[in-house]
Design a protein around this nucleic acid. Structure first.
Lengths: 339, 339
DNA sequence: CTGAAAGCGCTAACAC
DNA sequence: GTGTTAGCGCTTTCAG
């Protein structure tokens, strides 16, 4: 008859090594109170039998899963992807895995349902990425019975959070244009329900209110380059033309630049363009894009550190970590043209 | 004294509802053999106590984790990211989560160590993405005691795998250029140790061997746009200039286009450029990039389906799923110039 | 230094 | 329809 192909348990190893299960456990956990010889014997048996501790049993015993849940509405998005990378790396460094809990249904009811099931998951805590495509969720929706850290920049949220300092980012972008002499600046914003989009647009509007920037309506795109091409064409029909465009992300900056190229105008000689994100290709756009670098990996790292602290029992003080951005000046911005 | 803040177990619910733990279990699992009234009572107790089944206990009992491990060397990479998205969605549809197991150390020894720890993880099987930055791993390294599916296109690997049909993709890209009359085509390849890079380059070399394409050395980049800018400058020093460039990914196509723009040449009037991947921005590059679309979400889906089958006990037949690509013709390729 | 016993929370298998 | 028993694999007492 065929040998059973099941994984050996701690008892099998114990029997094989002629010791108790306890001793095997001690060896598996590097407990010092084991005679060197015994340890040798147990180790040998483990190797021979191909023993691996069963994590389900460990989890049950310890009440810990050593995994953190990463909840997101959309993975294929620069920001979420980078944040996930930061989280996964920080988690790994802490000996945790990262469990993906995608919420396909980004409606409030879908989110509520998903959160309801969340605490059944094999995770010790949750990092929720308030994706830019989803509006605000009410607090009850997010009341999971698990430690929670939110990745977002909306400091009014009642949760511990980490995020990019959107306001500071938008300010240095616009200040850069102001420093170059630009006053007639168009803002291509992200979708209306996105908090980062709003926050960046607010800084722009404030400068208008202060009279530092010419009054022009904010133009809303959907973060996609394609949406910005169309917006770009619209911008280029205005008279006079603006001297600069502040796009709320690099993709839309790319779209605007395409529209400008299509029209046969030069960047930055005729119009300056600045983006936000500093995506991989930005330095190689034509021309190389001046943009605002977000330290999303750092955001992910901070969120993870906070969550691990909460999991360890520290009280939730609702701390807000806003990570500052950095201006990256390249070739798409220049002095205001003389016309 | 403060009430204990621990999560209620099935026994607490049973006591509260005045039934046995078994009955609570039956209710939790929608077992039909429960009196409607009893069910009501139990459900009420569950809600009142905020009961959620403990997944660790369930896992221990069932021997299943309902999670699949996604092993990768690098998340911040278009292909891996998209594949992960496909996997996560397919897994979710099957009621599984996706556990990220990043391997920071992409050396053979690092990989070996990581695989050694893999079967301790709370996953039922593994999807390994043979990232383009890592060379071939020997078979022993990958001998985890867990069902395994590899995402790659190297059909010589002894594992069940899903991947893009690199050869077909490279062929339609080059055929497109040939159809436009190009013969003097440069290939900007990915790094030497990447299988997809090799496979795409091989198709190019074969056409050269057949005399369909002018003999020119393959130029190796590192997938990054920056590397391709430099290569592009080198290409533009050759005399005569090639009439077309086949870049092994969109990022490098972007870099080559930048070099061409820098030199003041027109695309595609002077030189045609074709990429590979069909990344988000490709349609908005200047000019819009002709490229080869990879169905990476489909690859992820197939890999997941195969893995779930293996987990369900189907024998591993080493099936190879190669997903064909699609040519996306945009504005960066045109007829061969008259010189 | 080592072993025995108990139990984490849940669910199959069997009573009643 | 419902309750009882036993045990998944491991580790935390507590004895020796």
């Amino acid at each position: 008859m065929p040998r059973k192909k099941t994984r050996p348990s701690i008892i099998d190893v114990a029997a094989h090594a002629g010791v108790s299960a306890q001793t095997v456990s001690r060896v598996a956990n590097d407990n010092p109170n084991v005679h060197a010889l015994t340890r040798q014997r147990v180790l040998a048996s483990m190797k021979e039998l191909g023993y691996r501790p069963n994590s389900a049993a460990r989890n049950l015993k310890s009440g810990r899963f050593r995994s953190i849940g990463f909840v997101t509405f959309n993975l294929t998005n620069f920001g979420n992807d980078r944040a996930l990378d930061g989280v996964a790396q920080a988690a790994e460094a802490a000996g945790c895995t990262t469990t993906l809990l995608p919420i396909a249904d980004a409606t409030p009811s879908g989110v509520a349902g998903a959160f309801g099931r969340l605490e059944e998951q094999a995770v010790d805590g949750i990092i929720l990425v308030m994706s830019s495509e989803v509006g605000p969720l009410d607090d009850l929706t997010m009341a999971a019975g698990l430690p929670l850290v939110v990745i977002d920049s909306d400091t009014r949220l009642p949760y511990t959070l980490a995020g990019t300092d959107q306001e500071q980012g938008a300010r240095i972008a616009l200040q850069h244009l102001l420093d170059l002499g630009h006053r007639d600046i168009v803002h291509v914003a992200g979708p209306d329900l996105s908090y980062p989009a709003h926050n960046r647009a607010d800084v722009y509007r404030r400068l208008q209110a202060e009279g530092q920037v010419t009054a022009r309506p904010v133009l809303f795109g959907d973060w996609s380059a394609a949406s910005a091409v169309e917006i770009g064409h619209r911008i280029l029909q205005s008279d006079p033309l603006p001297t600069a465009v502040f796009a709320a992300n690099d993709q839309m900056a790319l779209g605007v630049m395409k529209a400008i190229h299509d029209r046969g105008l030069r960047i930055p000689e005729d119009i300056s363009v600045i983006g936000f994100d500093d995506t991989e290709g930005a330095a190689t756009f034509w021309p190389a894009l001046t943009t605002v670098h977000q330290h999303l990996d750092e955001v992910g790292r901070l969120a993870t550190a906070e969550l691990l602290a909460l999991i360890d029992g520290e009280p939730d003080t609702g701390k807000k970590h806003l990570v500052p951005t950095r201006l990256v000046v390249r070739d798409s911005t220049g002095p205001v043209p003389h016309r």
